[in-house]
C-alpha cells in the first residue's frame, strides 16, 4: 500500500513540476524583463505580461507557408514536449520525481538538443532565407556549446559517481563541502555560460531584436504565428525556467524535499521560487550591462567555458 502511495506521490510531484515550469517559465521571463526595464529607468510591462501574450496568441489562427511540410507543425510540439519531459524527470521540487531514475543529466541534454533540432528543421522548412540563417547560426552555437555542457556535467557527476540527477543532488546534500570545492565553482561558471547560450540570452543572442544581421532564434521562428508561436514562446521560456531551476538545485540544493509530505513540498516550492527569482534578477541585471557579442566571437566564449569545465574535472581528480 505504501509503495502505491509513494508512486502516486512521486507522479504528483512530476505533474506539479510540469505545471510549475509551464507557469513559472513565462513568469521568469516577465520578471527578467521588468527588472531590465527598471534598471534602464523605464516602467516596463507587468510581470505576468508573457502569460497574457501567450493567451492572446493561443486564440489566434495559425498560418503555414505554402511550401512547408508536416515538420513545420510538429516542431513547436516537440520543443514544448521535450521541455515538459525534462521538467517531469528532473528533481526540481523533490529528490525523487516519478521517473527520476529513468533519465540522467546526459539524457536531459540530449532531450533539449532534440527540441532545438526540431525547431531548426521547422525554420528550414519555411524555405525562406531567414529560416535557414537562424537555423544555421543556432546550431553552430549549439554544437560548440555541447562540449562545455557535457564536460561540466562530468565534473558534477564525478564526486557522486553517477550522472543521475537525484544521486548528484542527494550527494551534495549529504556532503555540503562538495559545493565549495574549486571543481564545483569552475563547473558552475561553465554551466552559466552554457545556459545563457542554450536559452539565447545576451550576450549570445538578443531575444528582443528583429534586425536581420543579428537575429538567431527570432530568425528561425519568423514564420510562426498564432497558437504555434504561442507554443514556441512558451517552450523557450520553459526551457529558461527549467535550466535556471536545474542550476539552482544543482549548485544550491538546500530546501529541496528529500522525503514526501506536503509540508516538505511547500518549503521546497517556496525555496525554489526564491532561488530562481534571485537568479533571474541577477541574470537580468547582468544583461543590462552587456552588449550582444559578434556571432564569431561566441565560439571563443564557448571554448572558454569548455576550458573551465575541463579544469573542473581535473581539479576534481587532483583534489580528490
Amino acid at each position: 500500500m505504501t509503495s502505491t502511495w509513494s508512486v502516486a506521490a512521486d507522479a504528483a510531484i512530476s505533474v506539479l513540476q510540469m505545471a510549475g515550469v509551464v507557469l513559472g517559465g513565462p513568469l521568469l521571463v516577465g520578471l527578467m524583463r521588468t527588472v531590465r526595464c527598471r534598471l534602464e529607468g523605464r516602467v516596463g510591462p507587468p510581470v505576468r505580461q508573457p502569460l497574457l501574450d501567450l493567451r492572446k496568441l493561443a486564440r489566434r489562427q495559425r498560418t503555414r507557408p505554402e511550401h512547408a511540410s508536416w515538420i513545420f507543425g510538429l516542431a513547436p510540439l516537440l520543443l514544448v514536449a521535450t521541455t515538459l519531459v525534462v521538467a517531469a524527470v528532473a528533481p526540481l521540487l523533490a529528490t525523487g520525481p516519478a521517473l527520476g531514475w529513468s533519465a540522467d543529466l546526459f539524457a536531459v541534454v540530449y532531450l533539449l538538443l532534440l527540441g532545438s533540432v526540431a525547431l531548426a528543421l521547422g525554420g528550414l522548412d519555411t524555405g525562406t532565407a531567414f529560416g535557414g540563417m537562424g537555423a544555421s547560426r543556432a546550431l553552430t552555437i549549439g554544437a560548440v556549446a555541447e562540449p562545455a555542457l557535457l564536460v561540466s556535467i562530468l565534473a558534477l557527476s564525478v564526486p557522486a559517481h553517477s550522472s543521475n540527477l537525484p544521486a548528484i543532488i542527494s550527494g551534495s546534500l549529504a556532503h555540503p563541502l562538495w559545493l565549495a570545492t574549486p571543481e564545483r565553482l569552475l563547473a558552475l561558471a561553465a554551466f552559466v555560460i552554457v545556459i545563457v547560450a542554450e536559452c539565447g540570452r545576451l550576450p549570445v543572442d538578443n531575444p528582443g531584436t528583429h534586425l536581420e544581421l543579428t537575429m538567431i532564434h527570432e530568425a528561425m521562428v519568423l514564420e510562426y504565428s498564432g497558437s504555434d508561436l504561442a507554443l514556441i514562446k512558451l517552450g523557450e521560456s520553459m526551457r529558461l525556467g527549467v535550466l535556471v531551476a536545474l542550476f539552482a538545485v544543482l549548485f544550491v540544493p538546500w530546501g529541496i524535499a528529500t522525503s514526501p509530505g506536503p509540508e516538505h513540498l511547500a518549503v521546497s516550492l517556496v525555496s525554489l521560487v526564491a532561488k530562481v527569482a534571485v537568479l533571474g534578477v541577477g541574470l537580468a541585471a547582468f544583461e543590462v550591462g552587456v552588449a550582444k557579442l559578434r556571432l564569431f566571437r561566441v565560439p571563443e566564449l564557448m571554448a572558454g567555458a569548455f576550458v573551465l569545465a575541463v579544469l573542473a574535472v581535473l581539479s576534481a581528480l587532483v583534489l580528490a
Partner: peptide, 20 residues
C-alpha cells in the same frame, strides 16, 4: 497532450499563406 491542447484552443484550421 500538447497537440490536443493546441487543437482545443486554436480558433480554426491552419491558413496556408505566403512566407514573408
Amino acid at each position: 497532450t500538447v497537440a490536443l491542447v493546441r487543437a482545443a484552443v486554436e480558433p480554426g484550421p491552419v491558413r496556408v499563406a505566403e512566407a514573408w
